[in-house]
Design a binder for these strands. Structure first.
Length: 153
DNA sequence: CGTCTTTAGCGCCCCCTGCTGGT
DNA sequence: ACCAGCAGGGGGCGCTAAAGACG
């Protein structure tokens, strides 16, 4: 594996290289999940305890991380939308939302249903679609065969 | 070097809307 | 006409991980 990291400092490079190891020395005493840094662990424990140190000054919402607060403020208060679509006037608070939006231009449908020919532009639409397969008389093998997805059949 | 902050990303859920087929 | 089911587009938040910044 060739690591293309281009950090200017050796210390940053050394830290980066640690992500290639599975070393996660900091364990949550509640759920036993482990984390690479104490900061990550602290944030995680806050999700257990309900501690939300980052409070919005314009409403009563509060968040575990500063990033969540910034995003909330963009959505609800500042309406800053840094991610602009190059093909229309759409703009979004989050990059992932822009990515999802762009698929409405390109028609790309990366999320294929394994049981029929339907494919979705985002993960949740596929999940929602899957509910239509969960009715009575549902037989996955038959459905896969119908979709031409069973090998040797 | 360790910690805090910022940025990036995935996931989950919900809402509104339009289409379609059954009644 | 009305309604239910379904998919498209999008808003908002939960949480984790990596990189940047700093004492």
């Amino acid at each position: 594996i060739v690591c293309t990291f281009t950090a200017s400092r050796v210390s940053s490079f050394n830290r980066h290289m640690r992500i290639h190891s599975s070393e996660k020395p900091h364990m949550c005493h509640i759920c036993l999940k482990t984390f690479r840094t104490v900061t990550l662990l602290r944030n995680h424990i806050n999700t257990h305890t309900g501690t939300r140190p980052y409070k919005c000054v314009d409403c009563d919402m509060a968040f575990v991380t500063s990033g969540e607060l910034v995003r909330h403020r963009r959505y609800k208060h500042t309406h800053e939308k840094p991610f602009k679509c190059s093909m229309c006037t759409y703009a979004s608070v989050e990059a992932s939302k822009l990515k999802r939006h762009v698929r409405s231009h390109t028609g790309e449908r990366p999320f294929q249903c394994l049981l029929c020919s339907y494919a979705s532009k985002d993960t949740y639409k596929l999940k929602r679609h899957m509910r239509t397969h969960s009715g009575e008389c549902y037989r996955p093998e038959e459905a896969r065969e119908d979709a031409g997805l069973l090998e040797g059949s």
